[in-house]
Structures are given as C-alpha cells and as structure tokens.
C-alpha cells in the first residue's frame, strides 16, 4: 500500500521552477531516502507533502489525504523534524513531550504512558526535568524524533536529522528509525551522509527540481556501475545546471 503518491508535482516561484513534475510513490513502512544537492528542490517538495505549501500543479496524496483539499488531516497524520527546529530549548524534556502530545490531541493517560516508555527507550529517565537546551545535540535529535512520532503518525518526515551529530549517536538515531519502520511508520528522510543512504529501502535523487533516479541503493549502484552511493550521487548531481 502506498502512503505517499505524487503525480507530476510542480512548484514555481515566479519564473523559477523549484520542483519540476516529480512523480513517485512511497510504500507503507518503507524507509525512503530523499537525496539531492543543495538547491535541488528537496525542501520545497517536502513542505508541499507536509501540507505547508501549495503546489503550482500536479497531484499528491499523503496518508490517503489530498494535499490541496485536506491539508489539515495531512498534518494530523504526519510527524516532522528538522535539524534546525526540533524542540523548545527553554522547556524541560517532559514539558516538550506534554506540549507536542497536547497539540496532537493525546489524552493525559496516553501521554503519561508514552512519556514513560519513550524516556525508558532513550535511557533518559533521569533527564525528565532537564531543559532541552542543556542536552547534547545528539540527545536532542533522538528526543525530537521520538516526539515527532509520539502520536503514531503514518509517516514521519526527517529533514537532515543527523547533521553535525557525532558518529555513535548518528548510528543510534538510525536504530530509532529502523524501530519506527518496524512498527509500520513510514520514514521519509533527507541526508547528506551517503552511508545513511545505504540504510534506506529506496532512495530518490533530485537534480534541478526533477527526480533523476529512484531505486534501492543496490539497484542504483548496479545501474551506475559503481560500488558506493557516493559515486551514484556524484555522477547525478555533478550534472546539475543550477546552484542553490
């Protein structure tokens, strides 16, 4: 079953075509890597899929909802985290969980259970009353991810979640992603780390607003006759005509 269906999706800003007729599907429970050079159109496309921006033309359904007519239900059924905005630094760990859980309409009982379970999984039971700002970046990102899937969304969108995170924590973060995918949550993730592209079930690579390649990492490596995703990325993105 597809949780994301995109047909000829296009977004123009004036005479600049940021997203140029992209079409693809993402299956339920899949880890989908959304790669591309800076300025290729990834963020614009992702904002459309999150119901935050209206496309110029084309169609898209997210979690079964139409992004034109049902943007609000789309938002209720997705989770989102980015490297820049994750949580409120001047709120405590439990306050952030309470805030986001409340926004997504979880009951007090659900919230209590979920908070306890989440902090146990993250080994952060003793950090309940800690201000988020005083946590190391890696912990913040793991917490932000757990908060983004607190309401059991169908899909979670992750925009460069591991940038600047240390190598060990980066790998722990990916284990959280695997666990979420095993629970049936679809993961839609962008990254500049090519080793992380290997952890995805399928990977798309955007070049100048188009999706120029889409397949499993092993099939892409075969297609481009190479042994690393870095080379695949390089041979595609090098052709890009536009900068950021």
């Amino acid at each position: 079953m597809n949780v994301i269906e995109v047909r000829e999706l296009t977004k123009k800003f004036g005479d600049f075509t940021a997203v140029d007729k992209i079409s693809f599907e993402v299956k339920e429970g899949e880890i989908f890597g959304f790669l591309g050079a800076n300025g290729a159109g990834k963020t614009t496309a992702m904002r459309i899929l999150c119901g935050l921006s209206k496309p110029t033309s084309g169609e898209a359904k997210v979690a079964g909802y139409d992004i034109y007519k049902q943007a609000e239900p789309v938002k209720q059924h997705i989770g989102y985290m980015s490297q820049k905005f994750s949580l409120y630094g001047n709120l405590k760990v439990w306050e952030n969980i309470r805030l986001f859980g409340g926004i997504y309409g979880l009951s007090d009982k659900q919230l209590k259970e979920k908070t306890d379970r989440m902090l146990a999984v993250l080994h952060m039971e003793d950090k309940r009353d800690t201000l988020v700002d005083s946590l190391p970046l890696g912990w913040k990102q793991k917490l932000a991810f757990s908060v983004a899937i607190l309401h059991d969304p169908r899909i979670v969108f992750l925009d460069e979640p591991t940038g600047g995170v240390d190598p060990v924590t980066r790998r722990q973060f990916w284990e959280l992603i695997y666990q979420a995918a095993r629970r049936g949550i679809t993961v839609f993730v962008t990254t500049h780390y090519m080793d992380e592209a290997e952890y995805c079930d399928r990977v798309s690579i955007m070049v100048d607003g188009r999706v120029d390649a889409l397949d499993s990492p092993s099939a892409l490596k075969k297609q481009f006759n190479t042994t690393t995703m870095n080379d695949v990325f390089y041979s595609l993105a090098r052709k890009a005509g536009r900068g950021e």
Partner: peptide, 8 residues
C-alpha cells in the same frame, strides 16, 4: 556543514 557531497 549541511553542504551536499558534490559541493563539499
């Protein structure tokens, strides 16, 4: 930081 592999 935050720069794609080709630009890096």
């Amino acid at each position: 930081t935050g720069v794609d592999p080709v630009s890096r």
